[in-house]
Lab assay of single mutants.
Amino acid sequence: KCTICLSMLEDGEDVRRLPCMHLFHQLCVDQWLAMSKKCPICR
């Protein structure tokens, strides 16, 4: 589950894993990281 948009991560979707190993939709986390340089879970 992407904790930014709260939707399930589905096969075939573009996802991004951060160095902390948390996984998000690529678009969601890219937009998040443009505003904050910290993982939305770890922050």
Results as ranks from 00 to 15, higher is better:
9 L>Q: 01
17 R>Q: 08
7 S>G: 13
38 K>G: 14
19 P>E: 12
3 T>E: 06
26 Q>G: 13
37 K>L: 08
43 R>L: 15
6 L>P: 02
32 W>L: 14
28 C>S: 03
17 R>N: 02
34 A>W: 04
23 L>V: 12
30 D>A: 10
36 S>M: 07
37 K>D: 10
2 C>R: 01
27 L>I: 11
13 E>V: 06
11 D>T: 08
3 T>M: 10
18 L>Y: 06
15 V>A: 11
38 K>R: 06
1 K>F: 11
31 Q>N: 09
28 C>N: 00
21 M>V: 03
2 C>W: 00
23 L>H: 12
26 Q>I: 03
6 L>R: 13
32 W>M: 13
21 M>D: 14
12 G>V: 06
10 E>I: 14
11 D>L: 03
33 L>W: 08
40 P>I: 06
16 R>P: 03
4 I>H: 07
34 A>N: 08
8 M>R: 13
28 C>T: 02
17 R>T: 09
28 C>L: 00
8 M>H: 08
11 D>W: 02
17 R>L: 08
42 C>T: 04
43 R>W: 15
24 F>W: 03
35 M>R: 12
40 P>G: 03
42 C>Y: 02
12 G>C: 07
19 P>D: 04
27 L>C: 10
19 P>S: 07
41 I>N: 08
17 R>I: 02
27 L>K: 15
12 G>M: 08
26 Q>L: 07
22 H>E: 01
1 K>A: 05
20 C>W: 00
18 L>T: 03
23 L>C: 07
4 I>A: 04
16 R>K: 15
28 C>D: 02
2 C>L: 00
15 V>C: 08
40 P>T: 03
10 E>M: 11
24 F>D: 04
13 E>Y: 05
22 H>K: 01
9 L>A: 03
27 L>G: 14
34 A>R: 09
25 H>V: 00
15 V>I: 10
29 V>K: 04
31 Q>M: 07
11 D>A: 06
22 H>C: 10
37 K>M: 13
17 R>M: 09
18 L>S: 03
43 R>C: 15
7 S>D: 06
25 H>E: 01
41 I>W: 06
37 K>V: 07
36 S>Q: 14
29 V>I: 13
12 G>P: 04
31 Q>C: 03
12 G>E: 11
24 F>R: 04
30 D>T: 10
7 S>N: 15
19 P>K: 05
30 D>Q: 10
4 I>E: 04
23 L>I: 08
15 V>W: 08
4 I>C: 04
43 R>S: 15
19 P>C: 05
27 L>P: 12
1 K>Y: 14
19 P>H: 05
3 T>P: 05
28 C>Q: 01
12 G>W: 06
39 C>R: 03
5 C>R: 00
5 C>G: 00
36 S>F: 10
3 T>K: 07
8 M>D: 14
34 A>P: 05
43 R>V: 15
22 H>S: 02
37 K>W: 06
15 V>M: 12
21 M>E: 14
25 H>S: 00
27 L>A: 15
42 C>W: 01
33 L>G: 07
15 V>Q: 11
7 S>K: 15
33 L>V: 09
43 R>P: 15
43 R>A: 15
20 C>R: 01
26 Q>R: 13
3 T>W: 11
19 P>I: 06
10 E>R: 11
37 K>N: 02
42 C>G: 03
14 D>I: 08
13 E>S: 10
27 L>Y: 04
36 S>K: 12
35 M>K: 15
7 S>C: 09
37 K>T: 09
33 L>D: 08
27 L>N: 14
34 A>V: 08
